[in-house]
């Protein structure tokens, strides 16, 4: 019962942080909720391991990312190429900054899961390469390679989007 209480307390304390991580890596609030639920349900029977971890939130975040990546591998359907837009971006505010974020958000969805997870961990969670390597279960050099390829793909796709966007508006 103590573990049940510990679980409750943990979820209440970190639900928003975890939901954000799940949403950013899965592409929508709804998929993020599903991913988080799936992760918590699978961790609950072995919550003692989470509690015993050096940093429990990092343990859960790692489990969450791994479930996302392994689900992507096994599903056969690779990437979500069109992500749900955040509510605030659905309105009429089409300033350049918002337009750029919309494009970047969509392009993130087109990246392979591991690349996207690495970017989220670096640019949202501010993790160092060594910490990202632990989450992804790889070496630091591999992390740098993954992020480098992801950024290259984003730059390329962003440039294409910029050109096609201008062409469409002319």
């Amino acid at each position: 019962m103590d573990e049940a209480r510990a679980f409750d307390a943990f979820v209440r304390a970190h639900a928003t942080d975890l939901l954000r991580a799940a949403t950013l890596t899965s592409g929508s609030r709804e998929r993020g909720e599903e991913l988080l639920q799936d992760t918590l349900t699978n961790l609950y029977p072995q919550w003692d391991k989470v509690v015993a971890a050096d940093v429990p939130i990092a343990y859960v975040r790692r489990a969450l990312m791994n479930r996302l990546i392994s689900a992507g591998r096994s599903s056969g359907s690779r990437h979500v190429t069109l992500w749900d837009l955040p509510e605030r971006w659905d309105g009429n505010d089409m300033s350049e900054a918002i337009a750029t974020r919309r494009v970047i958000w969509q392009l993130l969805g087109a990246l392979p899961d591991r690349q996207r997870v690495a970017l989220v961990l670096r640019y949202f969670n501010d993790l160092a390469d060594a910490q990202i390597a632990k989450v992804l279960g790889c070496r630091e050099a591999t992390v740098r390679s993954i992020i480098s390829r992801a950024l290259a793909a984003l730059r390329r796709d962003l440039a294409v989007a910029s050109i096609t966007g201008k062409a469409a508006s002319e």
Partner: peptide, 22 residues
């Protein structure tokens, strides 16, 4: 669109989505 630093744009995008997620 890519004039600004890409790192900064990615960070802003992720943070804005996160801000809307509670």
């Amino acid at each position: 669109m890519i004039d600004r630093d890409l790192d900064e744009q990615i960070s802003e995008t992720l943070n804005e989505v996160a801000d809307q997620t509670h």
